[in-house]
Design a protein around this nucleic acid. Structure first.
Length: 825
RNA sequence: GGGCGGGUGGUGGAAUCGGUAUACACGCAGGACUUAAAAUCCUGUGGCCGUAAGGCCGUGAGGGUUCAAGUCCCUCCCCGCCCACCA
């Protein structure tokens, strides 16, 4: 047994040391070389790496090494998304410093990443909690502030009572905090926002350019941005000078509006009810709704809460007075916070109308199967023709949408408009462990930006972390009390820190010149390396991170520091790692620690297994049995080199051509897998097929073959196998390459093998014979056999002869070249 | 409710343009080596019938197109993920 756990440990350590010493993966911009930037989503340093990291980074590493062998100048960096709440929570718990905790975690993670043999340019390692990094967060923030893209406003925000901080809409999952899962409540606060909506149009439009992104991700972003075309309609209020604006995408149903509903928070509600007999009840309702969290409000089991406010609106198209309600199913954040209700043609309005016994009117009729109000059990939302809509009756509803919208615009009853689902991005966090927002509040001058030459605004050290009473920074006098940069009078510093998604929205640019003290990044370097050619990460970032990164890229382009509008050319979303059908997670206690696998099998086996078990984008069910298989395969390859490989070898016999065909086929198929969707599982299967062919060629138990002088198919096959395998299991392959007497400094500098299409050609092929649709026999024929020859040959097969007594019985004879013949008798 | 993926042996998964379904591996069974075990190697392995040759069935269900369907079309069932009172 030549290859033991100990051997692996020493081989892997040897090559990791070698790569470090020679800086094998150091990337340097060189305009004479074609670049390739491969990037994985950098980790949050929680300490140990988990299987998800292993899978993500192994995929990236295999791609990076393949591209290196292809002669690309490859940039493959790593860093740490190091700000965030776990560090702060750990600090609260252990009464320690988040910076220390984070540093320890980073050290540990750094070690583990090295043990996996990843081809990182370690000179570019960055951490977002480093002031040299977050200084540029503050720089970006100030640039945005100057352009009106960072602003402060009071609004009802999502508040996590457990984390004691606000959350972005994107961070509220099903009404709960995305991190701690507590119920989120609404709270009025003054907060910092980034105007991502300024880029809504280009964020949507440019999705079209991202043809190498998974369709799924593009659709998710499209839905999130949520552009909808519609009409703003103005309703006068009976006996009042106020006008209510509603937004609808269904102007074709305007004649069916039988009431109106406002969001309870709508600014006009209190004014409109004042003095009515409904006032008291309405105010109680508003209070009750405000106390409810959004998710509670939305969790309605079909029931729609609401109340009449005692006023009427005038439908501009027919002057009808319709009652105004407030209802919890109308959201203040979308549209104008007011809707016209068309219960016959909108399911939500239908439910509300049923609950409150409100009238309905059919205005879209199904011409095939007309229906009546009495028999309706749900709203009719399908296409149809207009009825009860005077000048527009009998028009198809799609056409009517356009006609009515145009007519209303012309008559000034409304205006065609576009609404977006995308909201501005709330970035304020009342936490310590994040980038301080570089603003100062002066009683005289108002909000004043910290001057650029005073950046970074550094986080103070030795801050007491209690987890109570808002941001810990509030209590740090020397941090808070500053003089105003404008008038030099006493002023107060902003104590909110930035959401960590800010940090990760541009780190890929920082990697281009990771330790640049002069600028956010070198424009020249960024011009060379960017955009990222291949980005790899989890589908869970399909919306948040990827949308923010695209937003920042567009902003930086507008600043003219870069000249491209999309950061990631290709995106691969790797599947989750499961155990027992569930995602591996600490809370479920079904994790497998990569360290244990490393200790027993080493990095190469783990890498090979995780790639072989499933295609990169599929879910991966962890099964340790497969590990043994990967281990066995690597052992076979090792022994193949040790026992079968000779530098010069002259044996030659009829099997040579077959072996060489397998060799060429492996090159073709493995290369293909890199170019067509990274199907590494099948790439590895072709390497196994080549290994099987080599063993078969040699014959089991043969002694080491004698040296000779001519080139050898066997030698070529083994060399090819090692080269093709090297991106997957680099340590072993470096070792084998050296054992074979090669002098290359490293295997990644050896050219990726090319294949010879001619060697794949065969002189004879086996044809299957199908008779009346069933496979009945087979025969071999020369590659260039004519149809007549094939017909003759196939009849010589005894099984065929049984079904086809003579050539005259053949009704139809179909040839699929090189594959089969199909006979109808 | 909407969108997007899926459904293939005991298991993970293969299958270019519609062309021999189950590649490759795991597991399992039998054998070789061994005092024995482990490791390694060899053979077999979709189901049913058959000593065999061979036959029939078989890619979630049912229908269709075709010489030929996992793949295309229609109807339906189930599973996963994402979004979701967005007017």
């Amino acid at each position: 047994m030549p290859y033991t756990t100990n051997d692996i440990k020493s081989i892997e350590a040897k090559w990791q040391k070698h790569w470090d010493a020679y800086k094998t993966f150091k990337a340097q911009a060189d305009v004479t070389k074609k670049k390739y930037y491969v990037l994985e989503m950098f980790p949050y340093p929680s300490g140990k790496i988990h299987m998800g990291h292993v899978r993500n980074y192994t995929i990236a590493d295999v791609i990076a090494r393949y591209k290196m062998m292809q002669g690309f100048n490859v940039l493959h960096p790593i860093g740490y998304d190091a700000f965030g709440q776990p560090a702060e929570n750990a600090a609260i718990k252990h009464k320690s410093d988040p910076a220390e905790w984070t540093d320890r975690c980073i050290d540990q993670m750094h070690e583990e990443l090295k043990q996996m043999g990843f081809s990182y340019d370690w000179d570019r390692e960055i951490s977002t909690c480093d002031a040299q990094y977050y200084k540029w967060n503050q720089w970006i923030f100030l640039k945005m502030w100057e352009r009106g893209l960072a602003y402060k406003k009071v609004s009802s925000v999502n508040w996590c009572p457990s984390c004691q901080t606000t959350l972005a809409n994107e961070e509220v999952i099903g009404g709960a905090c995305w991190r701690c899962k507590s119920q989120v409540v609404q709270k009025d606060l003054e907060q910092w926002y980034l105007k991502i909506t300024h880029y809504a149009q280009s964020l949507l439009e440019d999705l079209k350019q991202l043809e190498h992104w998974p369709l799924r991700v593009r659709l998710m972003q499209e839905n999130w941005i949520g552009k909808s075309f519609g009409v703003e309609i103005y309703f006068k209020i009976k006996g009042d000078t106020e006008t209510l604006t509603v937004f609808t995408t269904r102007p074709d149903t305007i004649f069916g509006a039988t009431y109106m509903v406002l969001a309870p928070e709508h600014p006009l509600v209190k004014k409109l009810v004042s003095g009515t007999k409904e006032e008291k009840a309405v105010l109680v309702f508003i209070d009750e709704t405000a106390g409810k969290s959004k998710s509670l409000r939305m969790s309605g089991d079909g029931r729609k809460e609401g109340i009449f406010i005692g006023r009427y609106a005038i439908n501009p198209v027919n002057q009808e007075a319709i009652p105004i309600f407030i209802g919890d199913y109308v959201l203040m954040e979308y549209g104008s916070g007011a809707i016209m209700a068309v219960p016959a043609h909108d399911q939500r309005d239908f439910e509300f109308a049923k609950t409150h016994q409100l009238p309905m009117r059919i205005v879209i009729q199904n011409p095939q199967e007309p229906f009546e109000l009495k028999s309706m059990t749900k709203a009719y939302e399908d296409p149809g023709v207009l009825v009860n809509s005077k000048p527009f009756n009998r028009i198809g509803n799609e056409e009517a949408k356009k006609k009515i919208a145009e007519w209303m615009s012309k008559e000034r009853m409304g205006k065609m408009t576009v609404h977006w689902r995308l909201r501005d991005w709330l970035i304020s966090r009342q936490r310590y462990w994040g980038t301080p927002i570089p603003m100062i509040y002066c009683d005289t001058c108002g909000a004043v930006p910290v001057p650029y030459d005073q950046l970074p605004v550094s986080l103070p050290k030795n801050v007491e972390m209690t987890g109570q009473g808002g941001s810990p920074l509030n209590r740090v006098e020397e941090f808070v009390n500053v003089s105003c940069p404008k008038c030099f009078k006493g002023a107060r510093r902003e104590t909110d820190t930035m959401a960590t998604f800010f940090d990760s929205s541009w780190y890929f640019l920082r990697f281009c010149s990771a330790h640049n003290d002069e600028e956010i990044f070198s424009q020249q370097e960024a011009k060379y390396w960017m955009p990222v050619d291949q980005y790899i990460g989890g589908i869970e970032h399909a919306i948040l991170h990827l949308l923010y990164a695209r937003f920042f890229t567009k902003f930086l382009k507008d600043l003219s520091v870069i000249d491209f509008g999309e950061p990631f050319t290709r995106l691969l979303t790797q599947g989750m790692v499961l155990k027992g059908g569930e995602v591996m997670s600490k809370s479920l206690g079904n994790t497998v620690d990569p360290d244990e696998i490393l200790a027993k099998y080493g990095a190469d086996t783990l890498r090979l297994f995780i790639l072989f078990a499933a295609p990169p984008e599929d879910q991966l069910e962890w099964n340790s049995d497969g590990l043994e298989g990967a281990w066995r395969f690597l052992n076979r390859v090792y022994q193949m080199v040790e026992k079968r490989y000779v530098k010069n070898f002259s044996a030659f016999d009829s099997k040579d051509q077959m072996l060489d065909r397998e060799r060429n086929n492996a090159i073709k198929r493995v290369s293909q897998s890199f170019e067509e969707g990274f199907k590494f599982n099948t790439a590895i299967s072709h390497l196994m097929i080549l290994a099987n062919a080599i063993d078969k060629y040699v014959g089991a138990g043969l002694p080491r073959l004698p040296d000779g002088e001519a080139t050898s198919p066997l030698r070529n096959a083994i060399e090819t196998l090692v080269l093709l395998l090297s991106p997957f299991t680099p340590h072993l392959c470096e070792e084998l390459w050296q054992m074979m007497g090669k002098n290359d400094a490293t295997i990644v500098k050896v050219a990726w093998p090319s294949f010879d299409e001619a060697a794949l050609k065969q002189t004879e092929v086996t044809y299957a014979v199908q008779i009346n649709g069933k496979i009945r026999g087979q025969f071999t024929a020369p590659v260039f056999a004519t149809q007549e020859q094939l017909q003759k040959l196939c009849l010589t097969d005894v099984h065929v002869a049984k079904y086809v007594p003579n050539a005259g019985a053949i009704k139809k004879f179909i040839v699929v070249p090189q594959k089969l013949v199909s006979i109808v008798v």
